[in-house]
C-alpha cells in the first residue's frame, strides 16, 4: 500500500448500487482465483441475517438506491436468502451472484412468482469460468462445469435468462472465440438467448497464489484522475454491506482500509484508491455492475436549455 496522502480520492457521487455480502466468505466451492478466498472453511465474514438486510433496505430509501446485489461466498448457502431476495424485490431491482450448483426448484419457483408480482427484474449472474470443463474445472474444481451447467438449465426451465460471468484466464485477443464457443454450448443446453459477461482477473486473495498479485506500480495516482470520468469506478456509486460493517466495494472487503462505517451515512466520504484492484476498476470500468446499468464514455452531464419556446 502507498501513503494515503499520495492516493487519488473518489467521492461517493450517489449510492446507485447497494451490495449485500449475504453469505460472507462461505462458499461450497474453493475457486483458485477467488479474490476474497471464499471456501467452505473461510469464516472471515459471516452470514447476514434477514433483519440486517431489512434494516439496510429501509435505510437505503433515503439514499435513492437504484438496485440491489446479493453476493458471497455462495449466497444460496444463507438459509434466509430467498426471503431476502423476495423482500428486496419490494424495493427495487435485484441481482444475485451464484455458482448455480446448489439451486432448488422450490426456491426458483418462489422467486419467479415474487418477480412477477412487481415491476422489477431479478437477475441471476452465474459464474462459470469458460465454455468447457478443461477451462473451468482447474479453477473452480473438478466437476463444477457440469454442475453449473445443470444449474443454468434449471434457471432456464424456471424462465430466467441468466448472465454467465467468467473471469478471463485466457489472452484478451481470444475473447471473441471464447464468447462464440460459450454461446454455442449454452444453446445446446437450452439457453437460447445466452448472455455473457467477461470479467478481468482480480489479483487478490487466492489468485495471488495461483498467478501473482499486483505490482507496486499498479496504482491509480491523482494525476490519472484528471480528465477521467470517475463515475466509471464502482466506489463512486456503491457500497457493500457485510456482517462486519459496510465496505467500499465488493472486491476489497478483506483489504485494509476498505471498511467505511456501520451505517450508510458513515460511508458517505471519499475513498482513497490505494489498492492494486483499483487499477483494474480504473482500466475496465465498474466491472461488478450489470450491462443494463453500466454507462460508458463521457456523454455528459446535461446542460439545460431555456425551455421549450
Amino acid at each position: 500500500m502507498i501513503e494515503a496522502s499520495a492516493a487519488a480520492f473518489v467521492e461517493l457521487h450517489g449510492l446507485d448500487e447497494l451490495w449485500f455480502q449475504v453469505a460472507g466468505t462461505r462458499c461450497n466451492l474453493s475457486c483458485s482465483h477467488c479474490f476474497i478466498s471464499c471456501s467452505p472453511h473461510n469464516d472471515l465474514f459471516g452470514f447476514l441475517s434477514l433483519d440486517d438486510v431489512r434494516s439496510v433496505l429501509v435505510e437505503s430509501i433515503e439514499w435513492g438506491v437504484r438496485e440491489y446485489y446479493f453476493t458471497g461466498g455462495e449466497p444460496f448457502l444463507n438459509p434466509d436468502l430467498v426471503e431476502m431476495l423476495v423482500t428486496a424485490l419490494g424495493y427495487g431491482p435485484v441481482t444475485v451472484l451464484t455458482n448455480a450448483t446448489v439451486l432448488k426448484d422450490e426456491w426458483l419457483l418462489r422467486l419467479r412468482a415474487a418477480e412477477e408480482q412487481g415491476p422489477f427484474s431479478l437477475e441471476y449472474r452465474v459464474s462459470i469460468d469458460g465454455p468447457d470443463p478443461q477451462t473451468n474445472d482447474p479453477i473452480r474444481g473438478e466437476g463444477t462445469f457440469e454442475r453449473a451447467i445443470r444449474g443454468v438449465e434449471q434457471l432456464v426451465r424456471h424462465g430466467a435468462l441468466p448472465i454467465i460471468t467468467m473471469a478471463r484466464t485466457w489472452p484478451d485477443h481470444r475473447d471473441d472465440e471464447v464468447l462464440g464457443r460459450f454461446r454455442d454450448v449454452l444453446r445446446q443446453h437450452g439457453c437460447n438467448r445466452p448472455r455473457l459477461k467477461i470479467l478481468p482477473r482480480l489479483k487478490l486473495g487466492a489468485e495471488v497464489e495461483r498467478t501473482e498479485g499486483y505490482a507496486d506500480w499498479e496504482r491509480v495516482s491523482p494525476g490519472m484522475l484528471e480528465g477521467f470520468d470517475s463515475t466509471q469506478l464502482i466506489c463512486s456509486h456503491s457500497r457493500t454491506v457485510t456482517d462486519r460493517g459496510i465496505f467500499v466495494c465488493p472486491i476489497l472487503v478483506d483489504q485494509p482500509g476498505a471498511w467505511m462505517g456501520e451505517s450508510l451515512a458513515e460511508t458517505d466520504r471519499p475513498f482513497p484508491l490505494e489498492h492494486g484492484a483499483c487499477m483494474t476498476c480504473y482500466q475496465y470500468g465498474a466491472i461488478c455492475t450489470n450491462p443494463s446499468s453500466q454507462f460508458h464514455g463521457q456523454a455528459g452531464e446535461t446542460d439545460r436549455g431555456e425551455g421549450g419556446r
Binding site: 438506491v65 437504484r66 438496485e67 427495487g92 415491476p119 443494463s292 454507462f295 456523454a299
Partner: peptide, 13 residues
Amino acid sequence: NEFLWESTTSDAF
C-alpha cells in the same frame, strides 16, 4: 446516455 429501464429503476432512485 444513462439507461432508465423500467425493470431496473427503483422508485427511490
